[in-house]
């Protein structure tokens, strides 16, 4: 298993504006930039990943002793020879600036929240670069019929709490908020 802290990747203001649903409206650019700069300063990006062999049936995907019942995931991995299971986070500092900005300004908190979202996706992209090879897109618990409840298994497998400081709430949400877990199929 590889666990790393990585430098904060570029956060595209254009992407942030898209997340903010700013449409063609350029007047939000300044506030999007402020959101990006707050998030950049607060971010602490960490990733953890591991390659696994896997087997599949039409309804299930099995990684070691972990069997996931999901037709859509199985179909998604049809052509793949192995999988990478990963977790990524932008860190708890981002949650702090989201809360703090929410108190100051609705627009800014939207910008910060969006910048955090863009950031964690950029962290995932960076992780995919590290993995290399030909891949199918990343697939997370809760997507398609990949049960959200598998989040627990993900957390155990990757020791998320210890490796990157990500914990689960009772409702199976990831804390810090700007965190992602997923499976990537390697072709």
């Amino acid at each position: 298993m590889t666990a790393l802290s990585i430098p904060v990747p570029e956060i595209s203001v254009k992407e942030v504006l898209y997340y903010m649903r700013a449409g063609q409206d350029e007047s939000a650019r300044a506030i999007a930039e402020e959101g990006v700069s707050l998030v950049r300063r607060a971010a602490d990006c960490k990733i953890v990943y591991e390659r696994f062999p896997f087997s599949r049936t039409d309804d299930t995907v099995t990684i070691g002793s972990w069997t996931i019942c999901s037709k859509s995931l199985s179909a998604h991995l049809k052509e793949c020879r192995e999988v990478v299971v990963f977790g990524a986070t932008a860190g708890i500092g981002v949650d702090r600036v989201i809360t703090a900005s929410g108190n100051r300004s609705g627009a800014l908190s939207l910008a910060v929240d969006s910048a955090g979202g863009v950031l964690v996706e950029a962290v995932c992209d960076r992780l995919e670069e590290l993995i290399g090879g030909k891949r199918v897109f990343r697939y997370s618990p809760g997507y398609g019929d990949f049960p959200l409840s598998e989040q627990r298994e993900m957390a155990n497998l990757l020791k998320l709490e210890k490796t990157i400081g990500v914990t689960l709430t009772e409702g199976l949400m990831l804390r810090p908020t700007k965190s992602v877990t997923a499976i990537i199929g390697i072709l």
Binding site: M20, A22, G23, Q24, D25, S105, A107
Partner: peptide, 14 residues
Amino acid sequence: EKRVYLPQLLMSAD
């Protein structure tokens, strides 16, 4: 009417 977008709405609110 989708002429104004969410950030603008919030900036006006601020």
